[in-house]
Structure formats: C-alpha cells, structure tokens
Design a protein around this nucleic acid. Sequence first.
DNA 1: CTGAAAGCGCTTACAG
DNA 2: CTGAAAGCGCTTACAG
Lengths: 330, 330
Amino acid sequence: MITIKEIAERANVSRTTVSRVLNKSGYVSEEARKRVQKVIEETGYVPSEHAKSLRTKKTNVIGVVLPKISTETSNRLVKGMDEIFAKEGYQILLANTNLEPEKEIEYLRLLKSRHVDGIILSATTINPSLVEEIYNLNIPFVAVGQSISGLTNVILDDYQATKDMVDFLIQKGHKQIAFIGVDERDRAVGYLRKAGYLDAMRENNLAVESTWVQKGEFNVESGFECMSQILGTSEKQPTAVLAVTDRLAIGALQRIKESGLSIPEDISLAGMGASEFSRYVTPALTTIDFSIEKAGREAAALILRKIGGENDHGMNITIPYRLIERASVQ
Amino acid sequence: MITIKEIAERANVSRTTVSRVLNKSGYVSEEARKRVQKVIEETGYVPSEHAKSLRTKKTNVIGVVLPKISTETSNRLVKGMDEIFAKEGYQILLANTNLEPEKEIEYLRLLKSRHVDGIILSATTINPSLVEEIYNLNIPFVAVGQSISGLTNVILDDYQATKDMVDFLIQKGHKQIAFIGVDERDRAVGYLRKAGYLDAMRENNLAVESTWVQKGEFNVESGFECMSQILGTSEKQPTAVLAVTDRLAIGALQRIKESGLSIPEDISLAGMGASEFSRYVTPALTTIDFSIEKAGREAAALILRKIGGENDHGMNITIPYRLIERASVQ
DNA sequence: CTGAAAGCGCTTACAG
DNA sequence: CTGAAAGCGCTTACAG
C-alpha cells in the first residue's frame, strides 16, 4: 500500500506539504500543489483513514446496533439514518445482536474500540447491565425504540398508538376485541402495546376474556397459531382482533380465512407497523404507521448534533404515528 | 480516552507487557498478568483498533456496497453475509449507493481508505470505469449478482431461472404469455431475465405480441401500470403474465383484480424472488426462490478465503434456484 | 510558502 | 519472563 511518504518523495516535497494539499489547509505554492496532485493521480493514492483518525480522533463512522438484521423495521430505520449520514459523509458500521443480549455489550465495546464517533442502539429488551455499560461508554449515544432514562431516546408512542387503535375499533361498534401480543420483556412492542390495549378496554368498560389475549412471536406462523387459539378456545368469539405487528396480523388473517370466516364481515382485523405489504393482502390491512424512517432520520440527526458537541441532557423525541384505515376493519 | 500507556503505568509494567496480556502472546508472569488484568477491569480499558490495525494491517471489517439499502434482496444478502462474518469476528461497513453510479467508485475508494479487509459489491449496472476501479483496488473483492470477468462472482442464474418459469407456464398450457421486465441496463434482472423469456418463447415457437413486453421499475405501482398497458393495448389478451420481481407481480395482481378478472382462472401470474409476502397475497404467488441468503453466505465465505490468501483466479459460483408453485398459476 | 519533528496508540523484533 | 525502541501512516504546532 502506497503512503504519504512515497508521494512526498515522488513529488519532491515533504510529507507536510502533501498533507496540506490533501486537506486543502495552509499555504502551498501552485507549483508544488500541481506536482503533488499529479503524483496522487498517477499512483491512485488514497490516504489511510486509520492513521488519520489516530491523530484526529475522528472516524466519520457511526455504529448501529440492531436486534435483528433482516426485519422491515431494522431496514427502514437504517434507511432513514443513512439518508442523513450519507449527506454528512458518515458511514454505518453494523452490529447485529440477533436478539442475544450478551452480544449487545460485546458489540458496544467493539464499536468503542473501533472509535466510532457515535452509537445508535435499536433496543428491544433492556437490562440493567446494558444500561450500566452504556453509561460508562462515554460516546455520543442515542437509543431508538425504547426509553432509557438519562439518555437521548427516539421513541414511538407504542402505548398511545395501541390505545388509539382499540378506541378506533370500539368506535366502529366492536365490543369483543382480541389481542395478539408478544413477550412483555420487549417493553415497547410487548409491554406497552398490551398496556394500551388493556387500558383502552378498561376505560370503555369492556370485558376481556382471557383467551382473547395471546402471546406470539415476531413471525407470520405465530400469528396463525395465536388466532387458532383465540378461535378454538374462546367462549365468546371476538368480533375484532388487533395484532401488535403486521406479520402477526397476516398470520391471523390466513387463519381466519381458512376457518371460512370473512374479514371484515365476520371478524375485523388490524395490525401495527404499516409494513409495505400490509396494503396488498386481501383485504388490505388497517394498521398504524410509526414512520420508522423518520425515527431513523431523527436518531441520525440527534447523534450528529451530539458529536458536534451539543449536550441535550437526555432528551426524548417521540415520533408521531398515524392510523391507516383500510378494508380489514368495518 | 484511556490508553495502553496508562494501563502500563498503573500496573507498573511496560506497554509491551500489557500488549502481551491483551493478545495472549509471549510470556508474562502470572503475577504481572493479574496486575494488568485488574487495572483493565477497573478502568474499562478497550484497546484502540485503529492503532492496532495501523500496525497489523488488519481491520476485521468488510465493506459492503449496496445499490439500495432497503430492499428485501439487500437485506437477505446482508443477513446471509452477517451469519458468516459474525462467527469469524468480522463486521460490516455499509455503503449505500442509492443507485447513483458515481457513488460506487467514491465508496470503493472510501472503503479502501478505511482499510477494510475486503469488499463485497452487490452490482446492478456495471460500467467500464467501475470495473477499472475495481481492478486497481487491489483488495480482496467479490461481486454478487453480476458476473464481472476476471473477478470472483457469486451469481444467480437469472437467464435459466426465467426460462424455466416460462417453460413451466407453457407446460401448463399457456401460449400467450406477457412479460413485465425492467431496464436492460440492469444486466441480471433487466437483460438476462428478458432474454430468458424471449428465448423460451422462441424455442417453443410462440409468438410474442409487442404490447406483451413491458418495462417497469422496482416497485408495486409500476407493476400495476405495466399490467394496465398490457390489458389496455393488447390485441390478443395474454393468458399468463410473468413479472421479473414479486413487487411488480403484486402490482400486476392488483390491476388484474381491479379489472374484474380472476387469478388464475382468467390470467395466471408469476413473480420472481420469493419475497416473504409472495405467499400471503391472494392468490399466493408462484415465484422463483433465488436463495439470496445463501448467495450472501457464499460471498462472505469467498471473501474470507481470499483474505486468508487463497487465490481463486476469478471463479464464479452460481447459486441454485427453485421454482415455487403456488395458486396464482393454473 | 515549506519542512523537521513530535505524537496519535498500538505491536514486535531484539536484547537482556 | 521483561522492556526500550522502532515503526505503522498520518497531522500539526513550530520555526524558518
């Protein structure tokens, strides 16, 4: 690999001068600049970012820790962040924890050792040792999806969005509403969305049969099975079902169809997340758009400001959501 | 940021010794090791990868250049790669060109300057100056999706897969088969898939009406419009339609339904790509599974071997595909 | 306008 | 078993 030393020798100047033309800093005579640029052209020399950042303490790399690499949410988040980062000359170093909690701490340290300028964490479950690690990290940090106290958080209003959706169903005349959730250790999707559902039901004086509340996982098959449970074990059949993700909702949709019931005539169905394909299933799915890309953009903008030295003292930004009404609810 | 120097001082040893316990290399007395480890624990010291790789010329980072960050194909590719890389302690540095060709060269240089150990490029359109740049890069390199001569390529058999799908439709009794493609500058998805379609038709002595061959873009709406063209302008209506991506196929599906025709009774429909939701539309979509994750794993494995010093002299690996038969074709 | 020299935080022959 | 010193490829006061 060719270095600044070789460029300097070939152009008959010092390394200092080469550095100056590279960074367009300080004075360099037109003549010297020409010679250096010519040699750089000829050799295809590219300065080493490592050596540079060893001095400058700046890498222009942001570490992004994802719970799962291949979900639509992760993708849209990364897409939103990249929109901002690309403009500012930052790149993303990916760290996929694959839902293994030990990996989070491991990757946080790894990213630190790589001297990323900042870290964005898309959090699902958070435990005290993780939070402790984050505090000690001492690197600009933003959490997305969960609120960690004392840190800067970009959050989705999981609780209120779910409540709104249930209220919407109630307004449509439904009184028997089932719920397909996920493990409550996932505070946002599991705990808060369930709380939103339960509170909305309670505030409207609607009873909740225990079989109406199912716990699934983040995939279509699980939605199918949860729906089987609801259909197979409930004394009173629900007239509407809310699933906390579109994937779960689509699984439920398959199951409802297979049992010969129609949507929305027999059962109304709603999802959450506004995944791309939620509008292309039949019937199109009523869902919540959480504006994940926007969350990504906000997180990126925030971390850039922190890197720029701004101290926001642990502010929270809540991304607005909207309810998308489609044919699956009547 | 705390450095090896400080650890050495606190533990009352030399930096050399600290380095040795860090890397578990050379001899260190049990006593010294204990002292050093204790100090590391206490301080939360993490060695700088930059300084390290400045010496060792190794970063354990692979640059991945993607044409678009938020497509299912990109995601599955990255997922496959990450499965392999995570095991071997490598991380992915993302570069999203957003389909802007100038960005490819720019990012290639940037990745080189960051001393990534290797680069994987998911290529769509390739132009001579890009290829030239790649040759000059002099870094372990693997291309996915397109075959670039002289390089190591992981390719999908776009031509044969499309031909197989058309043959399958013909075998089902179809003679009037329409085709929704994309710009042929995209060699794999645009050019080769179209060639597969045309050759299959010709070899079976089937005429192709010019209005049956439409060119769209990579989204659902475009499939909808292409289908409108086919339905609105063809003298003979096709009895089957093949779209080169599932997204295009789903757009076509919407359009066919809107015109009051049924699938597959009136028109059979096939897509390509086996996107997650292709099975959840109604009717479920017949499609080609290209095993993108596997392509990602193969690409990752290949680049690791190249990094390990193996010279494969520009080998090509073709990933097997399979046709998934579902309800949308009869 | 230019360059010698120090320093960023590591690793690694080399000598003891 | 241990450490002094050189060196990786840059940048940046400082001096001229």
